[in-house]
């Protein structure tokens, strides 16, 4: 959303110089989970943090949701300090972690949701209405009185998501919410979140390592690696930035025996490699400074003993952005 000059949108999340260390394995140094993170997320925004495993996504969410203290720097939620004003923050937030199924197995879907509605002090009838609504939205109606332990993984995660909405938080943290979710449940979740943000005055901070999810859902995306935010903008603008370079797709067979040798060609900004086991074809995605490196590149590919089957310029995707910033693809 573009707002004219002078119209500043309300900041929902703000971090300054945020740093978090963890004690590493004895003998080795501390692990830097977050390093000088400066972040601004606004009201009415779905903000995505995209990064590989171990990038620091969960650590950031834990700090913002008052579960973990920063080692250095500042973090504010709606202007409130996460260290000193945690109690005021907690009424406004909720957190859903994908792959986890918090709840009591012997209690029903309804009972689990009711428990949390009461932890947030919701009035009786109000809580009942909200639970009914959430259960409808997540298509859990048929399981209302089913014990949580009896639910399939997908439905457990739907319940987990419903729990996240139970206090209608101003700020919802979704930590890899579609991790391990079936396609239908994942689609459900995305629709629900996108619909919810439209109700106004809400903010979603979502972490993911799925490119398409970030691209499709998020108003803005921050790319994070090794605890550092490398770039932060709308998916469209991020793509336009890399499009200044050239993004190429090259199909080869067999795969590269020494990908490093290709990556180190002068002018190659990043490379990802996807093998299709069925066809034996490997797709290389390359982000290049400009096209002049192409001949060097192709000869290096041949040095690897590979045959080029097909090649062409491709529309830049978020993946290309990622490759150009991090140097490798996400799946590696």
């Amino acid at each position: 959303m573009f707002l004219g000059p002078g119209l500043k949108r309300d900041l929902s999340i703000e971090t300054k110089g945020l740093r978090r260390l963890f004690k590493g394995i004895p003998g080795k140094g501390d692990v830097v989970a977050l390093d000088q993170v400066d972040l601004e997320v606004y009201d009415d925004e779905i903000f995505g943090l995209l990064g590989p495993n171990g990038a620091g996504k969960t650590t950031l969410i834990k700090i913002l949701s008052t579960l973990l203290l920063p080692t250095q720097g500042e973090a504010r939620i709606k202007g409130l300090d996460v260290v000193k004003q945690a109690p005021q923050i907690r009424r406004m937030i909720n957190l859903v972690s994908g792959g986890e199924t918090p709840g009591y197995g012997i209690l029903s879907v309804k009972e689990n949701l009711w428990f949390f509605s009461q932890l947030y002090g919701l009035p009786r009838d109000f809580a009942k209405d909200r639970i009914t609504k959430l259960v409808d939205q997540l298509e859990l109606q048929d399981y209302l009185n089913t014990r949580m332990a009896k639910l399939s993984t997908g439905y457990k995660q739907r319940l987990n998501l419903a729990r996240g909405f139970v206090n209608d938080p101003a700020l919802l943290f979704l930590d890899e919410p579609t991790l391990g979710l079936d396609v239908i449940s994942a689609r459900h979740l995305r629709t629900l979140v996108k619909g919810w943000i439209k109700t106004g005055g809400k903010t979603v901070l979502l972490t993911t390592h799925y490119m398409a999810e970030a691209d499709q859902m998020c108003d803005r995306v921050g790319i994070i690696n090794h605890g550092k935010i490398l770039a932060c903008d709308t998916p469209q603008r991020l793509k336009t930035k890399v499009a200044g370079g050239a993004t190429w797709k090259i199909e080869i067979t067999p795969n590269l025996s020494q990908p490093e040798s290709v990556k180190s060609v002068q002018g190659v900004l990043g490379l990802s490699q996807n093998d299709n086991i069925e066809t034996g074809i490997t797709t290389l995605k390359l982000v290049l400074e400009d096209e002049s490196v192409m001949s060097d590149l192709l000869s290096k590919i041949r040095d690897n003993g590979c045959k080029v089957l097909n090649m062409g310029k491709s529309e830049p995707t978020l993946e290309d952005v990622y490759i150009s910033l991090v140097g490798t693809g996400l799946e590696e």
């Binding site: 008052t66 957190l95 932890l119």
Partner: peptide, 18 residues
């Protein structure tokens, strides 16, 4: 077992009423 402690902790009363 229930993976529920952190969700209770970030609720307004943290762990006290619980």
């Amino acid at each position: 077992r229930y993976e529920i402690l952190k969700n209770i902790y970030i609720s307004p009363g943290t762990l006290h009423p619980y």
